[in-house]
């Protein structure tokens, strides 16, 4: 028995050591964000006091417009994509119509089309019909492309709901739209939460499309803004301010993580459901 206890201790030590090594680079930016830029270079490997909270304020000032842009884009795009996805998923799950299987296959097949094929022609298409340098060019791709996985996920969820619930609503004379809003939407709040988190995360992390389509710094979203502002600096960068900006850009995700922990983890892991 004693041998087992020792092996448990060793196992825990190895695991903790690996986790420390993994998190160290991010931890370095975390305490680096609160350092004085003159003494940063001598003390960068470990946290020090006092915390210079003013770094955060000046970093916030320089990136706050990116954050508000991202929140605006994320909210509108996610709402649009969920509306489109849930309506279609309801029809595919609960209604009979001509060409249903074919149309469903046409939607799902889009998962097989890689972004690398559509990037260049999409850029030309958006340039011609909605123009560059506006919010719409950031929002529309998520409203148009985001629902595919949503339809897939929501359809199987709606199909799993018991038929009796729908029957009784229809007998009461509710039309399809009414059934959809009064039954499907309330019952699928949890899975919608997961989809919301997935969409927000992907918008928060997107930088390729914004740096291609947006030249105006005032319209950039957060990841693209961080890339443009802090990666092509000439001369010695101000590390504490840069790291403060990284920290500020993570705060909304941290809030989301603690506020919606359950959906967050499901959102992160549900890409595995695809298989």
């Amino acid at each position: 028995m004693k041998k087992k206890a020792i092996s448990q201790i060793i196992l825990n030590i190895i695991v903790i050591a690996l986790l420390v090594v993994m998190i160290y680079p991010l931890a370095m930016t975390l305490w680096g964000a609160f350092k004085n830029s003159f003494t940063y270079d001598q003390t960068k490997w470990y946290p020090t006091l006092p915390l210079r909270v003013t770094n955060i304020a000046s970093a916030y000032k320089s990136i706050k417009h990116y954050i508000f842009n991202t929140i605006f884009v994320a909210v509108t795009a996610t709402a649009g994509s969920l509306a489109v996805a849930s309506l279609a998923a309801y029809a595919f799950a609960r209604m009979e119509f001509v060409g249903k299987n074919f149309l469903y296959l046409a939607v799902i097949s889009l998962m097989m089309i890689p972004g690398v094929l559509t990037l260049v022609p999409s850029y030309v298409l958006y340039k011609n019909i909605v123009g560059l340098n506006n919010y719409l060019v950031l929002i529309l791709p998520t409203v148009a492309g985001g629902p595919v996985f949503g339809v897939f996920l929501l359809r199987s969820f709606y199909e799993g709901l018991p038929e009796s619930v729908f029957e009784s609503a229809r007998i009461d004379g509710a039309n399809e739209l009414r059934v959809f809003f009064s039954i499907c939407i309330p019952m699928s709040m949890s899975i919608m939460g997961t989809l919301v988190i997935m969409q927000i995360m992907s918008i928060w992390n997107e930088y390729l499309w914004p740096i291609i389509t947006i030249q105006d710094d005032r319209l950039l979203t957060i990841s693209a803004g961080l890339l443009q502002r802090f990666s092509n600096v000439t001369g010695v960068p101000n590390y504490p301010i840069t790291f403060s900006a990284y920290l500020v850009s993570s705060i909304p995700l941290i809030v989301l993580f603690f506020a919606a922990n359950k959906y967050y983890i499901e959102g992160l892991t549900s890409s595995a459901i695809k298989l």
Binding site: A83, L103, V107, I113, L125, V143, A144, P147
Partner: peptide, 16 residues
């Protein structure tokens, strides 16, 4: 119900 989805993916996914 499916019109918004079909229109959007035809224009912005299949066309490109």
């Amino acid at each position: 119900f499916i019109a918004p989805l079909i229109i959007l993916i035809s224009v912005f996914s299949y066309y490109p």
